[in-house]
Design a protein around this nucleic acid. Sequence first.
DNA 1: GTGCACCTTGAACCCAACTTGAAGTCAAGG
DNA 2: CCTTGACTTCAAGTTGGGTTCAAGGTGCAC
Lengths: 152, 152
Amino acid sequence: MDETLTIGQLANRFELKTSAIRYYERVGVLPEPARESGQRRYGLDAIKRLEILDVAKRAGFTLDEARVLLQRSDAGSPAFESLRELAARKLPEVDALIARARAMRTWLLTATDCSCTTLDVCALFDRDAQKPQTEVVRPLAITHVGRGQRAA
Amino acid sequence: MDETLTIGQLANRFELKTSAIRYYERVGVLPEPARESGQRRYGLDAIKRLEILDVAKRAGFTLDEARVLLQRSDAGSPAFESLRELAARKLPEVDALIARARAMRTWLLTATDCSCTTLDVCALFDRDAQKPQTEVVRPLAITHVGRGQRAA
DNA sequence: GTGCACCTTGAACCCAACTTGAAGTCAAGG
DNA sequence: CCTTGACTTCAAGTTGGGTTCAAGGTGCAC
């Protein structure tokens, strides 16, 4: 029980690829770990960090935001201010996402039992009728999900 | 009233950039339009297409899916089968998105009035406690929103 | 002493949906 | 004639979150 893990063991534990962990290190989300004959060795701190990161990703934070979060968490004292700040900024984005997704859902349901025979005459494609509910929301940073890798 | 628009006029009408319209043409979402001394001239068909595309994008279709949709719409006869098919395939993805977004929302609300002083001890970052509700959903093709351009 | 599993590196590649840039064309106005 | 402004082309860049590749190191068992 020496409490350190290789990158492969750590990756397994979090269902990540080793390349992802190296990537996190590269972009500053994880600090550089200790080495044993050139190889990375991770301790409890890294595990805790990845756990936090895991939750943060689920919560819709980008890696950049998570990086800030984790830096503050290290700093010690005013740790939680940044989290509350970030959460408060994130909330309206998430609300907008939910609203948009619901409008989409309604549209899709209607579409599956629409009986028009050509698209041109169908009310589903009446732009103005849809506008009020389904405003397009621009910068929505929930886009990290599922990009850059094909079916893990 | 000659009913044709230049690319710039069309772009204005849909709050797109001209580059986006050329891009749509390049990837086959819009057909090649007529030309007058080299310049694109768009008619009502193009407007209708962009209206459909607009709704399709709101509904979470990718450009690729929209392209199929619009091709079928041209073909004439079995037009709506493809739409119903696409809608049926899309629905569970949207449901998953909504579920995930709601879990996120709960988490964010909790975060804004959590009173922990360091991240390490906070229940918000207890991975296992969150798992059941907030499973990470992988391929979620709603990612077309807000990528590739900074704040239109 | 070699086979094997695991680790190392940097650079290049992936995706979607565009945007940006350079260099050129065209018509109208002064 | 010259400028202005809107158009044209094709190539390359941007974004985020990684993956993939080639070439090589390390340690242990057989």
